[in-house]
């Protein structure tokens, strides 16, 4: 008989790691990371000047790993509330596959490594921005805003908006109006995107005690805020065209996409009860992802591929 028989499963999980490599990959939030890679790549490609393709690829890797590290730190700190929400209960820490200390060490090591390598490969402004992004997401958003105010994702959304600015800074060594506009597009896109999700998952958030807008201020106020932010988002989404660092294809895409977002925001505002209301929120959530993807994809192709060939 082994000593294992005398050890409770909880004590055993604390003493013997149950983690597989895929659990550590899950800590990096791969789906969020893919959006970070995509928007940072756009910043890298659209920025004037050039960076050696290998160094650009390594810079992109650093930005992705830094974003993943902040995700791991987020999961370490939020393990208690993740366990209470159906959407997050199967994450590695609440599921008992990764010990909190493992996730913390993993996140910290990757944070330091990604920032240092980006500094060596590109420049220290880009590395500083990446460090600030990790700090902002892990400390300002996760530890402070998320459990304190319904404005959590409004302010915390900045963390997700920095990647194209970091990509731009990696190439140019500076922050310019163009990179600030790319930042603003994601920054203003974040509230309507997450509030649409929060309308669907408000019971989850309420159970976990996370003060999301629908939980604190009600669903009607959330619908009003979604509409207001979308009214700002539509013209901001077109700003690259107005400022002439994007062409006609981007202009048309942002116009059609912006009108689509506005139509869905009005739909959310009007449908307030039952299944139609949930469907409207679901449509807004899904379309907002498509909208952001389309804006950055067109910008990437138009400025990164077409403009360099012709």
């Amino acid at each position: 008989m082994s000593l294992v028989d005398d050890t409770s499963s909880i004590e055993r999980t604390a003493l013997v790691s149950q983690a597989e490599p895929r659990d550590f990959i899950a800590l990096l939030k791969p789906r969020v990371m893919s959006l970070v890679i995509f928007t940072a790549l756009t910043g890298l490609v659209v920025a004037p000047g050039g960076l050696h393709p290998v160094l650009a690829a390594i810079s992109l890797l650093c930005i992705a790993v830094g974003a993943g590290a902040s995700g791991a730190l987020n999961m370490w700190y939020d393990a208690d509330i993740d366990a209470l929400m159906a959407r997050t209960a199967k994450r590695p820490i609440p599921a008992g596959r990764v010990a909190p200390g493992e996730a913390l060490a993993f996140g910290l090591v990757l944070s330091v490594l990604s920032v240092l390598v980006l500094g060596l490969v590109a420049n220290w402004l880009a590395a500083g921005l990446l460090a600030f992004t990790i700090f902002f997401y892990a400390v300002v958003y996760t530890m402070w805003l998320k459990r304190w105010t319904p404005q959590n994702i409004v302010i915390g959304g900045a963390a997700g908006a920095f990647p194209p600015m970091i990509g731009w800074a990696a190439v140019t060594g500076s922050v310019s109006i163009e990179s600030i506009v790319l930042f603003l597009i994601i920054f203003i896109w974040t509230p309507p995107h997450f509030w649409a999700l929060a309308l669907i998952k408000s019971e989850d958030y309420a159970r976990a005690g996370v003060p999301m807008l629908p939980v604190v201020c009600g669903e009607d106020e959330t619908r009003r805020q979604i509409l207001l932010y979308t009214l700002v988002l539509a013209p901001v989404g077109m700003a690259p065209w107005f400022l002439s660092f994007a062409g006609l294809a981007y202009g048309l895409t942002s116009l059609v996409g912006g009108l689509g977002m506005l139509w869905l925001a009005v739909d959310i505002y009007r449908r307030r009860e039952g299944a139609p209301a949930r469907k409207a929120a679901g449509r807004m959530f899904a379309f907002s992802i498509l909208y952001l993807f389309a804006l950055f994809a067109v910008l990437l192709v138009e400025q990164g591929v077409v403009a360099r060939i012709f």
């Binding site: 082994s2 000593l3 294992v4 050890t7 055993r12 003493l15 013997v16 790691s17 149950q18 983690a19 597989e20 490599p21 550590f24």
Partner: peptide, 18 residues
């Protein structure tokens, strides 16, 4: 000490390889 089960040994080996 704790004796690792075959499954835990497999996971440990995977982590080491990673």
């Amino acid at each position: 000490g704790i004796v690792l089960t075959p499954e835990e040994k497999r996971r440990q080996r995977q982590r080491n390889l990673a």
